[in-house]
Design a protein around this nucleic acid. Sequence first.
DNA 1: GTTGTGACCATATGCCAATATCGTCACTAG
DNA 2: CTAGTGACGATATTGGCATATGGTCACAAC
Lengths: 198, 198
Amino acid sequence: MAGRRGPTEHGVRDQIVEAARAHFSRFGYGKTTVADLAKAIGFSKAYIYKFFDSKQAIGQAICAQTLEQVFAGGKASIAEGKSESDKLRRFFNGIIAASAELFFEDKMLYDIAAHAAEERWPSVIAYMECAEETLKTIILAGRESGEFERKTPIDETCEAILLAMQSFMNPLMLKHNLKDLPEDPAKVINLVLRSLAP
Amino acid sequence: MAGRRGPTEHGVRDQIVEAARAHFSRFGYGKTTVADLAKAIGFSKAYIYKFFDSKQAIGQAICAQTLEQVFAGGKASIAEGKSESDKLRRFFNGIIAASAELFFEDKMLYDIAAHAAEERWPSVIAYMECAEETLKTIILAGRESGEFERKTPIDETCEAILLAMQSFMNPLMLKHNLKDLPEDPAKVINLVLRSLAP
DNA sequence: GTTGTGACCATATGCCAATATCGTCACTAG
DNA sequence: CTAGTGACGATATTGGCATATGGTCACAAC
């Protein structure tokens, strides 16, 4: 993990992350100081730096956690899917719903994710890679079952779909498109599904 | 036109726009003052406000001009197209090429466009509407000739395609995707064309 | 009427010192 | 060795003030 230091598994690391999540969520990344976090867990500021390279590395950890949660929202929605098309639709709707909820319920954490997207933090890359992997699984299954076409190279298909969904996957874009949920993403997902037709 | 005032057709208005384009391009929007523009055209600052509501209105005019140029880049590329699929492909490639050129050749103006996209300026709305109209024309022609499917409502199709192309149409997004030109847009355009197949 | 402006106000911006924050390091305690 | 810290230098950030800038208006010249 980028920006980490010292013992990988350590109670104090978890404490730091926990305190950071609470503080970032309440006061925002900018208004939270490393000293605040140190005070919250009862250690000195210097000790924090035994576990993280920088404040930004802590931000990355929180962002990664947040995006994992969003991704989990998509992943969980897949289960109910009756077909691969349905799974794909639910996957994206799940991610978008989780992102929108984050926006309305935890704006501060959303802003960190948006900033991470702007700055291309590793956590965002990882998030996209997870999404691509899940997408690939669905599409391969759909190809297997004859639900989807098989001519296009699988990686091109997956990359193209993710690029096409950026208006809703990328926190920077999503915030402009919130007012047209869920109709607009549905339109793009429909387009994607038509493109997958055999 | 939003933010305009006084005589619609007027030489001085053109002078203002011309001077603004030159100054914004060289020094940027922020570093250019209305007084600078006044001095450049040899009138007083107050006279500028006979033609524009605000400095931002001038920015909008320049942005509109810039986006019209980008759009023209796409529109011009259509001509060479042999089929409607080809026209669609060329249209987007033309827009993207013009945008990328703007980024590299006139970064200051590009930044204005990016800012306009972020703030949803009318010029950006207009730009998207022009794109949608052109797209609609191409798709209707393709439907007519049997090149494209006809079941999906035409407006849904057009909106979905534009949303899917946001990664390259929106200046905010494009700047992150410049390194993967022209492969990445080609992937999405391929996806779009597959979705249009009858 | 149209063309054009200097003087003006309110707010935004730049600047500079004081302060706060980030991040490191030598060091102590066990 | 691991756990932990106070004190420190470098770099952001803040607050207050002077200045610059955006924007208006009454008015002049034609």
